[in-house]
Design a protein around this nucleic acid. Structure first.
Ligand SMILES: [Mn+2]
Ligand SMILES: [Mn+2]
Ligand SMILES: [Zn+2]
Ligand SMILES: [Zn+2]
Lengths: 149, 149
DNA sequence: TTATTAAATAGGAATTATTATTGTTTAATA
DNA sequence: TATTAAACAATAATAATTCCTATTTAATAA
């Protein structure tokens, strides 16, 4: 999932009609590399050493552009600022109150249960486009991995 | 639910150890009155005619304070700014993409289904505190009411 | 009822996150 | 290699929120 060559990234970017600039490639790569839905600041810190001249305006503009063409997704954090991710599959988010992480939680069985549940409901004047779970949780041991089986 | 006297509001506020100032009462009343999870701006517009001298700093400070003592709740909108509500019951939110409304959706049966579903799961190093549904939808006819039965 | 005092307020400055502007540079194409 | 629309760096502007401080007020008790 993470092992994608620069050539592939270039193709991905140009296939949606965008110029494959070095800045855009670096930004897209950074979001793919960083876990837990990085903030703009975290993305800037990731790209700065190799690309110190990328301006914050360019970073914001590119993140917005990449979201528009569906190469990235934008997520609102509990704290109020935006965070980004390259995982485009339908999934839910676990918000860790102690670590401020946002962890992906994909569960097709659960999605089906919800789909069936709302299929039975009578919706008046309303079209549901998407249903996501927002799970507020905390990591018990900050140094250990979490899992849901 | 909306018919609560000023005396009752005063009691509610002082019972959590806060001074029942005219500003605080007005702000709490305004959030109780306004539907669809008002923004700070909408709350200001509501209180301004009767209390033109309430400063924006006081408004922010009071909203924060009332959230801290659990008389109000803070909700983040899709647009990025915070919105407030006096409904403290556990409930889900329907985000209307066309009207930008946030509509409450309470469903005890669904809560139970989710509770049972996650009870079966093995959680490693994770404590779930709360699960909410975030429903993205659109009102088909903006002038008519919506409902889910 | 009045005095005391900690809490709260008004008004405005400061900060933070994000967006807009503009002259210059560059990737794509022919 | 020349052309050109798109993208860029730098920076100004905006919006939302938080912070600061001198002044006012609600609560309490003499
Ligand atoms: Mn992710
Ligand atoms: Mn509500
Ligand atoms: Zn995610
Ligand atoms: Zn609500």
């Amino acid at each position: 999932m993470n092992l994608i060559s620069v050539t592939d990234i270039k193709h991905k970017i140009s296939s949606v009609g965008l110029k494959a600039t070095s800045q855009r490639i670096a930004i897209y790569q950074a979001v793919m590399k960083l876990k837990n839905h990085p903030t703009v600041e975290m993305i800037l810190e990731e790209i700065s050493p190799l690309h110190p001249s990328i301006s914050v305006g360019t970073l914001y503009k590119n993140l917005e552009t990449l979201v528009e063409v569906s190469l990235l997704e934008k997520v609102k954090s509990e704290e109020g600022n935006y965070r980004f991710e390259a995982n485009l599959d339908k999934h839910n988010h676990i918000y860790c109150s102690n670590t401020k992480e946002i962890i992906d939680y994909q569960d097709d069985e659960l999605d089906l249960i919800l789909f069936e549940y709302f299929k039975k409901k009578k919706l008046k004047n309303l079209k549901i486009n998407d249903i996501r779970l927002q799970i507020s949780a905390e990591r018990l041991n900050i140094n250990k991995e979490i899992s849901i089986q």
